[in-house]
Amino acid sequence: MVQTFNGLQLGVMLFLMAAGLTLVLGIMDFVNLAHGSLLMVGAYVASTITGWTGSFLLGLAAALPAAFLAGVLLEVAVLRHFYDRGHLEQVLATFGLILFFNEAVRLIWGPAALFFDPPSALRGQVEILPGAPYPAFRLAIIVVGLAVALALYLVIARTRVGMRIRAGASNRDIAQALGLDIGRLFAVVFGAGAALAGLAGVILGPITNVEPGMGDPVLILAFVVIIIGGIGSVRGAFAAALLVGLVDTLGRAFLPILLRLVLNPSNADAAGPALASMLIYLLMAAILFFRPHGLFPARTG
């Protein structure tokens, strides 16, 4: 039960990263490796402001606009020059940006990990079931993540902006032919995606360490989520994020135990963690084998 909640919590965090990214990929056919850096910016700003003011809420309130601004700045200054370039140039440029961001953070805040406490009100445990206590902060993450997912769903499914986003993600040329200003639409999506990545950073900070490069492994997991869900599909990203979160967490918890049933203990203890670490990638490979464009392909033609 606790593991299921941990899986959900990882899932919603991945969703926050993947939601903006999948739209960026879908609408602009653009690889942004620097998305993980935005998560890092969110985490660093939140942890610094919280450290100064002692208020987690102020930290959160500062981190989201900071990530949003960093994202918009990045888009205007660098990324938009690469939309009509090949994927190779995009990869090189955004890889360069990652190196820059990671090192810049090291320069400003130092190489050591920062400590970042969850807000005092959420430091305790909550009993989710009788006899099953669970950290309140992690529970809050799940609630916030699901709320954001619901809000995103409503925006995309019910509003005019959402309709345009869907049109842009499924077929850019047609959307453009219908008179959509893809550039403006994209700026909105990119900014929102950056803010979501920042939120993911604020959430991740208290659970792990706030350190240079912290966003990059999350970015790669978000890629796995996007591949499974289908590029450009927020719905796919949500389903895939929860799937990846649950499979990864439950796999790590139970696979070694399961293996003990079939192997002798020492072999099981050696193979269990190894296999568990590969589980989501094998899942990805299996899904790709049957559905090369993911579970919910958004793109047509």
């Binding site: 690469f82 090189l92 360069g96 190196l99 961001f101 090192e103 810049a104 320069l107």
Partner: peptide
């Protein structure tokens, strides 16, 4: 901190 210089250099190379 050489990568602070190297990173933007890569962006320039890509451009």
């Amino acid at each position: 901190h050489w990568q602070v210089v190297f990173g933007p250099l890569l962006v320039a190379v890509a451009l």
